[in-house]
Simulated scan of single mutants.
Amino acid sequence: MTDPSCAAPPSQWKTFRAPDKVVADLPELESGTNHSKVADRWTYPASEVHQWMTRPATAPKGRKLVFLTFDDGPDKTVTAQELTNLEKGGVPATFFMITPQMQGVPVDLLRRSLRDGNGLGVHSYSHDYRYLFKGDAAQRATHVACDYDWALAQARAILGSGYAESGFRYPGGHMSWSHLGQADAELARRGVVPIDWNAMSGDADAQMPTTVPGYLAMVKKSIAEAGNPRVVVLLNHDNKERTAEAMPSIIAWLKSQHYQFGIIS
């Protein structure tokens, strides 16, 4: 999908419609994926990660996996800080992007993220709750499908026509909304499954942590409350400077707990 047939969803960002032609892939992008070739070794399909979260007994035995995820980017300042954190920690993450925001960052930032072995996922085009989740199930399905088509088109306009991914992070999370069965079916027709999380740093809470120890305590508490699953999908946000300050400590603690790090395709 490079040329959506529906009208553009509402957005606070400038619309930049992808041309109805092949857009050259960024050199770092492995065509048909959301990452570079270097990330093949630690990439997991969204359908598998979704199953491991919803049916913990099916998770791989004898190992612990963590997927660091960052929503709401990319951001010129914080994304660069998080990429440095990941580089220094020697671990990858998945960035779920509000794709029109990609036009507000240097393309070299996206190339750096791919080169480092991170995954670039979709977190919607509009990020507008009133548009996405208003009305009955049929209306929600129409709007979610249209939003996703536009989000994918905008990603392909910058990353290249070969960009593809299979895990959609609903704004607010799938768990926060009802009557999404038809919307999920529309995503499935596009080869996409919803990806939520089972742990968080708390950086979107009303009473978000204000210190690095507070962030780390929230991560530990949230994983414990999830039953210490073998597969952890950790929610963070890519526009929070305090999250970036805390991330080295979070990464170090996860390593101390013998988690292996992966990305979601």
Rank of each mutant, 00 (worst) to 15 (best):
E87G: 08
Q154S: 14
A8P: 11
I158R: 14
A188H: 03
V192F: 07
G89C: 07
P19I: 10
I223E: 04
E87Q: 15
P10M: 02
A252L: 10
G104E: 15
D203H: 06
R169G: 04
F95T: 01
I263E: 00
Y44K: 14
D71Y: 07
S126R: 10
A164M: 14
S47K: 11
L86D: 00
W13N: 15
S201K: 08
D108I: 04
Y148P: 07
G227R: 00
Q260S: 15
T211L: 06
H174I: 13
F96M: 01
H123G: 01
K255R: 12
R111P: 12
P56C: 00
A224F: 05
K221G: 11
W177G: 03
E225G: 09
A217Y: 10
L83Y: 03
A199V: 04
R230D: 10
D203R: 08
P106N: 05
Q139R: 12
A206H: 12
A138R: 12
P56F: 00
G181L: 05
K76V: 15
E87N: 13
S47N: 06
E241N: 13
Y131V: 00
Y125T: 12
F95V: 08
L159H: 08
K37E: 14
E48T: 14
D196I: 00
A46K: 04
D238H: 07
A80K: 12
F70M: 12
G121I: 01
L120Q: 08
D71W: 01
L132G: 09
G89D: 03
A24W: 00
P106L: 09
S265V: 07
S222A: 05
S36A: 14
A153Q: 01
R55V: 14
T15L: 14
S176M: 11
K221L: 11
W13I: 14
P248Q: 02
A93G: 02
A252Q: 06
D205Y: 05
A188N: 09
V91E: 03
P213F: 02
I98V: 15
L152M: 14
H237D: 08
E225M: 11
R156G: 03
G191H: 06
R169E: 02
